[in-house]
Simulated scan of single mutants.
Amino acid sequence: MGIKDFKVEVNSKKIIHNYQYLKKLKKKEIIAVVKANAYGHGIEQIVELLWSNGCKYFAVARECEAEKILCLKLDNINILILETIEDIEFLNKNKNIEMVVNSLKDLLFLLDNGVRTAQLHLKLDFGFGRNGVIEQDFTELEKLIIEKNLNFKGICTHIFAADYNDMIDIEKKFNNFIKRLDKNRFEVIHMQNSAGVISIKGENCTHIRCGTILFGLQEIGYYDPNIKRAFKLIGRVLDIKDLTNLKYIGYQKKEDLNLEKSKKIAKIRLGYGDGFSKRSEGTMSIINNKKFKIVHISMDSTFILVDDSVKNGDLVEIFQDLEESINFLKVPHYEFLSLINDRIKRETT
């Protein structure tokens, strides 16, 4: 890695602070969601960090993410796959791998093929429309469980609503269904997403399931000042050029860009080949505690309008103001942070 390459700097102390704070706040164990490369923070580094500080339960979306964790060869660890997987042999070979059951059809298939219910978590969908057994199938699901006297590793739902009253309604429905089935059928009960961790009590839950909040990425409207952000996307100015000597910036003609009478442009080693989307053109970078506009993003480079205060080698931070970036890009922070790919090194400090 060159001195002027970009990196994601992850503050390990802040992640451990968040983990310990949430455990103490909720008085429950945590299922740490580390899908999408731990929301851009680096799945292997984050799992090892949390595992060494007492976390033994992790959730991912897909098998390929679970395989990355298995390769770490950590003892006493459980990995929950949130999406339906078709490779039953993968479950049979790895007894510490668990899977969410996302439909009644999936459950029937898994039972017919001899998959142990001790590796399965039932998921209930109260209108999210993404994953889970839908409400229309609840009666048939209840009948199947009682007739076959099934016990599962876990049961869960997802708090998807932004409206607090809707969150409470989902929690009530979830608790009522667990009571109908008898909660003793389930070793692990979990329901919260990161916003739900802040706003929902989680009655009957044995664990809290959270991802972005562990890294200090909070939802607007659901904010806890004790949670600390751990992510920084930083690098250094690679080169500075005088605009008067240029006809093009990247592939665009200089006059086609809104250069605001600036005289200098800085180049950094970050581009859409690294997952830094061209949609970020127009966002602000931070150099020497001052904001400078990003005007062009190419495959491997990005160009920033600067003034005479900026020098070659100065530190540059991207996405420092997350709320500003969210408002400009019109997408949540976990989308644009997760896009930063493996060409950018993750460094835990």
Results as ranks from 00 to 15, higher is better:
241 K>F: 04
51 W>H: 15
263 K>P: 01
299 M>I: 05
319 F>N: 08
188 V>C: 09
221 G>V: 11
199 S>D: 13
46 I>Q: 01
4 K>E: 04
86 E>I: 04
231 F>D: 06
335 E>M: 02
329 L>F: 11
186 F>Y: 14
12 S>N: 10
156 C>W: 00
228 K>Q: 12
4 K>H: 05
127 G>K: 11
277 S>I: 06
75 D>Q: 14
196 G>M: 03
231 F>N: 10
164 Y>E: 10
25 L>Q: 12
20 Q>L: 12
348 T>I: 15
334 Y>G: 00
80 L>S: 07
289 N>E: 12
326 I>W: 11
37 N>Y: 08
17 H>I: 07
101 V>D: 04
207 H>W: 07
271 G>A: 01
291 K>S: 14
298 S>F: 01
65 E>V: 02
40 G>E: 03
151 N>L: 02
248 Y>C: 05
301 S>P: 00
261 K>N: 15
167 M>F: 00
275 G>R: 08
66 A>K: 05
172 K>Q: 14
212 T>N: 09
321 D>K: 11
286 I>R: 10
26 K>S: 04
61 A>P: 01
347 E>S: 05
117 T>Y: 03
192 Q>A: 04
281 E>F: 02
27 K>R: 11
59 A>H: 09
263 K>T: 13
149 N>A: 13
27 K>N: 14
83 E>W: 08
343 R>V: 00
47 V>L: 10
244 T>H: 11
244 T>K: 15
317 E>A: 11
146 I>T: 11
76 N>K: 14
